[in-house]
Design a protein around this nucleic acid. Sequence first.
DNA 1: ACCTGAACACCGTTCAAGT
DNA 2: ACCTGAACACCGTTCAAGT
Lengths: 202, 202
Amino acid sequence: MARRSRHTREELQALIVEATLSLVREKGAGHVTARRIAEVIGYTPGMLYAAFTNLQEILLHVNAESLESLHADCVSAQDGADGPEASLRAMGLAYLGFAERRTHQFDLLFQRMEVDDLSVPPALSQRIRSLFELVERQLATLAPAADDVALQVGARALWSGVHGTAALTLSRQLYIDRPHADREIVETLITRFLDSWRQAPS
Amino acid sequence: MARRSRHTREELQALIVEATLSLVREKGAGHVTARRIAEVIGYTPGMLYAAFTNLQEILLHVNAESLESLHADCVSAQDGADGPEASLRAMGLAYLGFAERRTHQFDLLFQRMEVDDLSVPPALSQRIRSLFELVERQLATLAPAADDVALQVGARALWSGVHGTAALTLSRQLYIDRPHADREIVETLITRFLDSWRQAPS
DNA sequence: ACCTGAACACCGTTCAAGT
DNA sequence: ACCTGAACACCGTTCAAGT
């Protein structure tokens, strides 16, 4: 086949990431192959290696997009909330909701990859930090006297619980027989954490 | 090559699982292949399919072994502890310790597999339940009035936090720059949860 | 210069054929 | 009966050769 079109490297990268993202959403990362990505965008597999160093780097960019969505979901969940506690609850439910609706993306996002020498896209690590900052901000409002370390540790303690609940729900390892158990667990977690946080934030 | 030895199906299964476990420990599940397993035990790859239906089933049995170790670690951590709070703290640290020492096993254990039609080995699901029961028991001691549902939800809320901390630490997504941040986070989590739990367990 | 097409060194899994 | 060896339909990645 002849040359199909002229795309700059950046356009090719965007095409590839978009195609890969849709494959991940539909089938899961396990079914994504270089040959299938190439097929979707109408190129040969070899061409991918002109735009990225390997398949793993492409998946890292998919993760950056996923985290962008997750972050946006959390921010807009907070928008409708009244006060820091409601805000944290809304964020927690949004996080669970993302894990349920975009299961394959969530899986890929938190699955440990062997990142040999690839640079993690800056958008990726930046968005994770931002997520924690959203939590820290609400905790700070609830306890203005808390210092930075307490806020950082507290936000990570609380959010590890939300994340763990989402992760265990997806891997069906929660072993509890109640409808919407995940939401109940996250509600409990947030209630109890804030209970204690309000009394003594340090 | 001629027949090398006579093994019953059960002996073969044990050989295979043991070989696979050691490959997982050394290199991670991503580097485990049917050909490598066969090489370790001195058979041909095809033979694996006389003992198991596929590679995935073998990995499920590896998970059963891993969970056995994790459970044993948690139980023996409790043995040295004085009282329910110390017991939960010791378990939490043991859980983190397992995730750190046996990283590849932990990864495989909580990575979502597409379990087509394979039966999860009963030892596997049973051990997860047992882990939660260890937590429930300590929570019950702290609040004898708590009902079963509160205990189940509480144990999962608390343990999702411990699990989430371990998972985020391994995937380097905690983004906090403190030595032993994971332990600090788990300590915080347990302290705050119990703080609230003691006051109002329901 | 951009992209292809073929190749290389791998996979998981099956199954006829050997012993 | 037990196990092999070869095959099938795939992989990710590279790179000489075409346009």
